[in-house]
Design a binder for these strands. Structure first.
Ligand SMILES: [Mn+2]
Ligand SMILES: [Mn+2]
Ligand SMILES: [Zn+2]
Ligand SMILES: [Zn+2]
Lengths: 138, 138
DNA sequence: ATCCTACAATGGACTTTGTCTAAGTCAAGT
DNA sequence: ACTTGACTTAGACAAAGTCCATTGTAGGAT
């Protein structure tokens, strides 16, 4: 049973077959699927699920804070069920593989006052790019 | 005269009216325009310039390393003529204003070996988000 | 000054990613 | 079982970007 599904159920969410399969598809570590990838996998379990429902459901999960939107490339947004622990991403520039990473320290302290232009900063997003071992050996 | 234009001319680029206006539009500090914004401003100087040419020209400038693509939001890519000095970005979550910032230190050192999954890391991208002074006072 | 041609520009069709709506369906409380 | 508001659906629509066949031209050659 999906951990994500448990958390959603506890919020008085109306449970439908569609929402169940979307939650199931998102279960796991280092999961960062696009909406259409989620749809393709959901269709395998529930053939009549529509694209609009997948977009709606993902959007609601994001609003509830149970899923995070990630934009590591400039293409489609990706949906990350690992929302309970803040983390950053490491992306292979060749194959697109994405890993969750946890840098030490706080990147905020690296931005001096003179570089803040009077902004109140609330969030920092870090994306590391490189080549994964698989692509390096090929 | 645009600094960017000077650099491009020195690379044996065939100079056309279209390329000139695109380079002129990109001149300045803290410039991060979308392709369509570049097109709109270019049309003001050269009414018959096409959208495809703007996309082509921006793409070539990126290939030459004279312009950097920036994706601070999940909408359109933005084009940044400040390519000669590496920097990061500070974005206002309300109005979208983008400032170039230069954090101290190297964010790479914050990622321990145990969090690198065997990747060879070549690049780090940092985006700070917050509220600009203008939006804060409103 | 004119010619030539490889490179550049154009407009429109097409693709991808995502949003919206009107109509139909269903989960869950009574 | 009934009711009802919430959920789902298909398809139209939109924004951002790519691709291509055709037309135009910058800049070197004559
Ligand atoms: Mn993640
Ligand atoms: Mn910049
Ligand atoms: Zn790879
Ligand atoms: Zn602002």
């Amino acid at each position: 049973m999906s951990d994500l599904l448990e958390r959603l159920r506890g919020r008085g969410w109306r449970m439908t077959a569609q929402r169940r399969v979307v939650a199931e598809v998102l279960d796991g570590d280092h999961i960062h699927l696009t909406a259409d990838e989620v749809h393709a996998r959901a269709v395998a379990k529930l053939p009549e699920i529509s694209r609009a429902t997948v977009y709606n459901t993902l959007g609601e999960m994001v609003s509830l804070g149970e899923v995070v939107e990630v934009s590591t490339d400039r293409r489609a947004k990706r949906y990350d069920p690992n929302a309970h622990r803040p983390h950053q991403h490491l992306v292979c520039a060749q194959c697109g593989t994405i890993r969750d990473v946890h840098p030490t320290g706080n990147p905020l302290t690296d931005l001096p006052d003179s570089e803040r232009f009077g902004f109140t900063i609330s969030d920092v997003e870090v994306t590391y790019r490189g080549t994964c071992p698989n692509c390096a050996s090929a």
